[in-house]
């Protein structure tokens, strides 16, 4: 389970500050008549690394997709970096440019080269000069250890490489918060490690992260809080050590026994 995390984690920069990054209060969401998210209350401080887990259909992806308004909530309040998410497009664009997102299926733009994928948003949203944007892009490509792929197309890269490009693409916007929506679920076991390594490095630098993932090794090594969701509700949250060793709710116990049992 945790063999993917083979090295010591450097905790020196992983400090949680008192500043609130995301504040969600009494948030409810429906798909048609189906109540997918029920009374979600959650505060994320700057520098926190949160892992959200739960059975499929529990609303965990929907929750983090609400944070950058890929999904719209119908009740309650979501405040990201001091900006409340309403139907006001200006606020949405502001939040989206502050919050990076990494998807299960990478969602790279297949018609653009890796470098173009990385520079597109900085050039068109942030109005960064092309040259500067390319320098930043190369910096992050080196960081995810694939600078030599800059002029290839996404279709020429392996899944793990594509996901690392996707992470780099988000980082190029200099986000203050990163959301990960099952980033390793579509990857072969060999490639999961390289993506997790990249995510760990990011955590070590103090990035505020919300990860929907089933990589419990990652949760134990990096997260400072684990949230367990079921049927659209937050059922339990705790520090990883407590969460794994001493789960309180019956649902959590059942879930952990199922995913850790084999």
């Amino acid at each position: 389970m945790s063999e993917a995390i083979a090295r010591e984690i450097d905790h020196s920069h992983m400090q949680v500050s008192d500043e609130v990054a995301i504040q969600i209060t009494q948030m409810n969401k429906w798909y048609g008549t189906f109540h997918v998210l029920r009374d979600i209350n959650m505060t994320v401080n700057r520098g926190e690394r949160i892992v959200i887990c739960g059975p499929s259909g529990s609303g965990k992806s929907t929750l983090i997709r609400c944070i950058n308004r890929l999904e719209e909530h119908q009740q309650g309040q979501i405040i990201v970096d001091g900006t409340e998410l309403t139907s006001d497009l200006k606020n949405i664009d502001k939040v989206r440019s502050e919050v990076g997102m990494v998807f299960q299926h990478f969602n790279l733009f297949p018609h653009l080269t890796i470098l173009e994928n990385l520079t597109l948003a900085p050039i068109w949203v942030r109005k960064t000069p092309r040259k500067e944007a390319e320098e930043v892009a190369m910096h992050y490509l080196r960081k995810v250890k694939i600078p030599e792929q800059a002029n290839k197309y996404p279709g020429q890269l392996s899944g793990g490489q594509q996901q690392r490009v996707a992470i780099a693409r988000s980082l190029c916007m200099k986000p203050r918060i990163m959301l990960f929506d099952e980033p390793t679920s579509a990857l072969d076991p060999e490639m999961i490690k390289e993506v997790l390594d990249t995510m760990i490095e990011l955590a070590e630098e103090g990035m505020t992260m919300l990860c929907v993932t089933h990589e419990m090794g990652f949760a134990q090594a990096v997260a400072n809080r684990v949230i367990f969701m079921d049927q659209g509700q937050i059922v339990e949250q705790n520090a990883p050590k407590e969460f794994f060793n001493n789960p309180q709710s019956e649902r959590t116990k059942l879930f952990l026994s199922q995913i850790l049992g084999h």
Partner: peptide
């Protein structure tokens, strides 16, 4: 795929920029 729209949205591209680029 829907993911292309979502990725464009998540990067903060507005409707017309997402369409065009």
């Amino acid at each position: 795929p829907r993911g292309q729209y979502e990725a464009a949205d998540a990067l903060g591209l507005d409707y017309w920029k997402a369409q065009r680029l």
